[in-house]
Design a protein around this nucleic acid. Structure first.
Lengths: 271, 271
DNA sequence: GCTAAGGCCTCCAGTAAGGGGAGAGTCAAG
DNA sequence: CTTGACTCTCCCCTTACTGGAGGCCTTAGC
């Protein structure tokens, strides 16, 4: 039987010399002959066959340990079936994981891209427009506005992949309240879902007045004032709750700079 | 400003103590205060904020190096956009890779599962049946039958994901030839594809006689003999080339045991 | 006979993101 | 003063190798 030096065998098998030495150490591929004196490794045809199997399994992404196990237990593709099924499930899990991340990335990217285009309108004018009805899931609560973070996180966890669109807050108070405000963080949904502790329903559409507010939430007062004045002038009767749509707020990752926040304030008009 | 011990901060941030120490070393998250004497780490609110960002980025699968870079360059989700896009492409590549492997796994699994059910029929009887036309890609060659391996590997590389069904060989010789046999390894295709060096065409369907052969290829002689006798008895006129469908041959991974090979020999009948 | 070039060997260090544990110092309560 | 909880540093382990240093052996060229 012809023998090949490690260099020759490397070229034949497509494995590097380093890798071959490593596989020898791991008992994954033991050379047919190791010269006593020099320690030189010599490989033969059967080594090559085994090397091909190893390469094939490696390309399927098996760990070396698994390959070792497979080589020990299997002599035929049929015997590998169980391992293949297992590996397939592993891969499908990995794909699912990555798919989920991509979805999250997409939603962040979309939000930021929208916000960017919104930012170009620097002057904020009051607009009259018509809102479409919208399906949302919300958590109504009493307390400080700044406590809404928890609610949004909870919405994120419970509704996850069903969310679609910008988060918003419904404000039920007629006057400004610091400590015991009555409000409802909510997110638009792509489809009807049930989730514990979350009220899912359709918000009515209709004619509304809207104002885009640039800057921190503490400054909402002035923008609300402008909206109310505008409504009074035209004798519009406004419908509770008002809506605050977070075009750009604290990001999913960074808190960002409140001066750069963009929020659209909306009031439906009673007709 | 309140300070927290590493244990408290660990509970607050959801990062293990080990991880916090590691991030300190990597300068990813430097405690607000390190006591000179004891070396105790003390964290503050701003550390917590940074920790939240790190966790968020880590959940998106960013490497710590990238996180470090992002933290250095970005102060806002908008700044991260480029990184997010990049990460998304990475993920999509990873998904594609895994999808490809899953497809390969599926084809191996399918082949072996089919072979297994075929194996249960132990007696091989000559059958008359009707073949549907089938789209194939093939590489016609002259030489030894045993040289077909290269051709199949080439078909695998060039047609990859378009293949669907069991590989087969078309034999154009009227008599047995050792050295200069004329044959064509080919694979069924799901759709019309073009590939250099590969002839893609539809094999005609029609009535045929078929015999399932169990065992090594060297024993084909007897099975062919049985088919030819059967045809002569019934005065069937057979059409060249004959087809050898590899129900179970050398696996994609293991060469397997030739005694377990299963091949279906088919001859179309001239009508 | 000497040197240079390959080819081969072993051993060590490093990768990413920490986990596990040893041995020693620190802190607060009983 | 002791005990138990907490913290520190340092080292080794993981995967599947890669890179490099230093050394042995053979052959070709001068």
């Amino acid at each position: 039987m012809t023998l090949y030096s490690i260099g020759e065998f490397s070229r034949m098998s497509g494995l590097t010399v380093k890798t071959l030495r490593f596989y020898h150490e791991k008992q994954l591929l033991t050379p047919a002959l190791v010269e006593q004196e020099t320690g030189y490794r010599n490989y033969d045809k059967s080594n090559l066959e085994r090397a091909h199997i190893i390469v094939a399994l490696r390309e399927l992404g098996f760990a070396l340990d698994s390959i070792l196990e497979i080589l020990a237990e299997c002599g035929d593709d049929a015997d590998v079936l169980i391992f293949l099924e297992e590996r397939k499930h592993q891969l499908q899990d990995e794909i699912r994981e990555r798919d989920d991340i991509v979805r999250v990335l997409d939603s962040i990217i979309e939000t930021e891209t929208n916000a960017r285009s919104e930012m170009t309108k620097t002057i904020s004018e009051i607009e009259e427009k018509v809102l479409a009805p919208i399906l949302v899931g919300g958590i109504r609560m009493t307390g400080r506005y700044s406590d809404c973070g928890k609610a949004f996180r909870q919405l994120g966890r419970k509704l996850g992949r069903h969310m679609g669109g910008k988060a918003m807050m419904l404000c039920y108070d007629d006057e400004y309240r610091e400590e015991d405000a009555d409000f409802e963080p909510c997110v638009p949904l792509k489809r009807e879902v049930q989730a514990e502790g979350v009220e899912v329903r359709e918000l009515p559409g209709g004619k509304c007045i809207s104002l885009v507010h640039f800057g921190p939430y503490e400054d909402f007062g002035r923008s609300y004032h402008r909206l109310l004045d505008y409504a009074k002038e035209r004798e519009f009767s406004l419908v509770n709750p008002s809506r605050e749509v977070f075009i750009k707020g604290p990001g999913m990752i960074f808190k960002g700079n409140p001066k750069k926040y963009v929020t659209e304030l909306q009031f439906l008009i009673k007709t």
